[in-house]
Design a protein around this nucleic acid. Structure first.
Length: 271
DNA sequence: AAAGCACCCTGTACGC
DNA sequence: TGCGTACAGGGTGCTT
């Protein structure tokens, strides 16, 4: 499931291959994949657009074009890859973008939840997003201010992209374990020390996961732009480990559902 | 502000 | 072996 570290890894891989490349046309095989504008209009407007750089905002892959932005949200199963000219089509391809050198950017997405956007201004899509947790200027004080007045459960809050951009179900659970905080804790009940611990956990878990190239679980729903697996699955402490011993204290990991999302935690380490 | 839920989808795990 | 069903996930939109 692509979250911040996976999207970051994909964006870096794409930047390597696409910086300076020029689109000539696009094809849309599943119309709903293109959220805006209409698929026909996207095809017309992408022609001649050059990729200045590829980056990330929250869980969106952002193609910074010479005019406007192409954004892709991978959701559950989306994958982006650049393939050589003439490569035979593969299953679940929802949209393709032809480059003027013959190569092709492909968007595959088995579950069809992923979305593509072509907009003039980045903010048209990213305005509701909270801050970037790994930004250099995201300070502990910023985080404390963000928490102020939040009465919800920590797990739900971490998943809220308007609170903080980029965490998904896996890393939210990993962050709470690293911070030794119970997922059902109310955000406004944290002591100063706990707020700091949570801030540090968010930063360190995400940094380590980016350094590992993300998490590829056994379902292999995530592969980077080059088709490689991540390595952070080897460091996962709680996610998907229900019943297995906590790596710190040996207590069996428990699972409960919060806000409709499965949540994994150590009942001893996260009181 | 927060919580709960249906919805969008499909591959997979499970029970019979 | 083969079938049907439940479930997982991120995000949106709706209701309470």
């Amino acid at each position: 499931m692509p979250e911040l570290p996976e999207v970051e890894t994909v964006a870096r891989g794409l930047h390597k291959h696409l910086a300076g490349a020029k689109f000539i046309t696009a094809a849309v095989y599943w119309p709903r994949t293109v959220a805006r504008p209409a698929p026909d209009e996207l095809r017309a407007r992408i022609a001649g657009r050059e990729v200045k750089s590829v980056g990330r905002r929250g869980k969106y892959v952002v193609f910074d074009l010479d005019r406007g932005y192409l954004l892709v949200h991978l959701k559950m199963s989306g994958r982006l890859a650049v393939v050589p000219a003439g490569q035979p089509p593969d299953p679940h391809t929802r949209a393709t973008f032809d480059l003027d050198d013959g190569r092709q950017l492909r968007f595959r997405d088995t579950r069809r939840f992923g979305r593509v956007y072509l907009v003039d201004e980045l903010e048209e899509i990213t305005a509701p997003l909270g801050p970037e947790p790994l930004a250099d200027d995201f300070s502990p004080d910023d985080f404390v201010r963000l928490l102020a007045g939040r009465a919800g459960r920590l797990k739900s809050l971490l998943l809220n992209q308007e609170f903080l951009a980029g965490l998904g179900n896996i890393y939210a659970d990993e962050v709470l374990f690293a911070a030794h905080l119970h997922p059902l804790r109310r955000a406004d009940s944290l002591t100063g020390a706990e707020q700091t611990r949570l801030y540090e956990a968010i930063r360190s878990v995400l940094q380590r996961a980016v350094a590992s190239g993300g998490t590829t679980l056994p379902d292999r729903n995530y592969l980077d732009a080059e088709g490689r697996e991540g390595a952070y699955q080897n460091e996962v402490a709680v996610y998907g480990r229900k019943g297995k011993p906590c790596r710190e204290c040996g207590t069996p990991i428990e699972r409960l559902v919060i806000g409709g999302r499965s949540t994994h935690f150590c009942p001893r380490c996260q009181q």
